[in-house]
């Protein structure tokens, strides 16, 4: 599937992307951004600033009004197999079991049933849902549903994960567990991740790089390398002085845009 990938330092390049919606809402304006291969980059900004808009343009789900997105130096014209999306509202098929939901991406790629189920089982286990293969989404908690969404994104073996506020609709405890589990998973599955959030703590906690978006029509205000070793510190990051400083710095910047 990815035979002739040109290896560049930046797997994703966003060049002068703007988006004005049909109603006349100018969501984002002239965004330039380079996403390094193999890192987790967060898009952070207040609600309604255009984070989802930018992520969907990168996903190829939404056409930009101007500018272009390059993935491995090739322009994006729509969704592609090298990108997988994780939705804020999970976007699971309510009439399908966990197993079918997780393997749905492969089903759409016409992979034979036995083969896709085998792959799906592997990822169901990796996200910690062993034993729930035959459950339906409505039988699962919010956190578990997002694990299904994550497993589905992992099965298709894409290099890039696009996650739109994936943990925003679960409770605080579950969210922390999900953040830790995501970081551990990313140790096994080498992926480039773009992670959207409006939580400063979450942004600093999970990412290598934080991209701060300003208010609408938003553009890139600041890019910060966290320089945190997420795995080694194993949850102790939250007491790390550097972590706390970063959170404070970001808050000071974001505060200016709130009225």
């Amino acid at each position: 599937m990815q035979s002739q990938v040109v290896t560049t330092e930046h797997i994703i390049e966003v060049k002068g992307i703007s988006k004005t919606y049909d109603g006349g809402v100018e969501a984002i304006k002239n965004i330039d951004l380079q996403i390094p291969r193999g890192e987790l980059t967060t898009l952070l900004g207040p609600s309604g600033c255009g984070k989802t808009t930018l992520l969907k343009i990168i996903a190829g789900l939404l056409p930009p009004s101007g500018g272009e997105v390059l993935i491995n130096n090739k322009p994006v014209h729509g969704p592609g197999p090298e990108r997988a999306f994780v939705f804020q509202d999970f976007a699971l098929l309510p009439w399908a079991t966990v197993l079918r939901n997780v393997s749905f991406g492969l089903e759409l790629r016409k992979m034979p049933k036995a083969q896709r189920h085998e792959i799906a089982r592997k990822y169901i286990s990796e996200v910690g849902l062993d034993g729930f293969e035959n459950s339906y989404p409505h039988e699962l908690s919010g956190g578990m549903r997002q694990r299904v969404g994550l497993a589905r994104a992992l099965t298709v073996d894409s290099d890039i994960l696009l996650m739109d506020e994936p943990f925003a609709s679960v409770d605080e405890q579950t969210r922390r567990k999900l953040q830790d589990d995501l970081l551990k998973l990313l140790q096994i599955e080498k992926k480039t991740v773009i992670f959207v959030t409006h939580s400063i703590e979450e942004a600093v906690y999970v990412s290598d790089k934080v991209v701060l978006l300003g208010p609408r029509p938003s553009s890139v205000m600041k890019i910060i390398d966290t320089g945190l070793d997420h795995i080694k510190s194993d949850g102790d990051i939250r007491r790390d002085k550097h972590y706390l400083d970063l959170v404070e710095d970001l808050w000071l910047i974001l505060k200016q845009y709130l009225t």
């Binding site: 789900l61 999306f85 939705f87 509202d89 976007a91 749905f104 991406g105 759409l108």
Partner: peptide
Amino acid sequence: SLIEMSNSYGA
């Protein structure tokens, strides 16, 4: 989002 999900996985 169900439609977007399907599109994003190449339906």
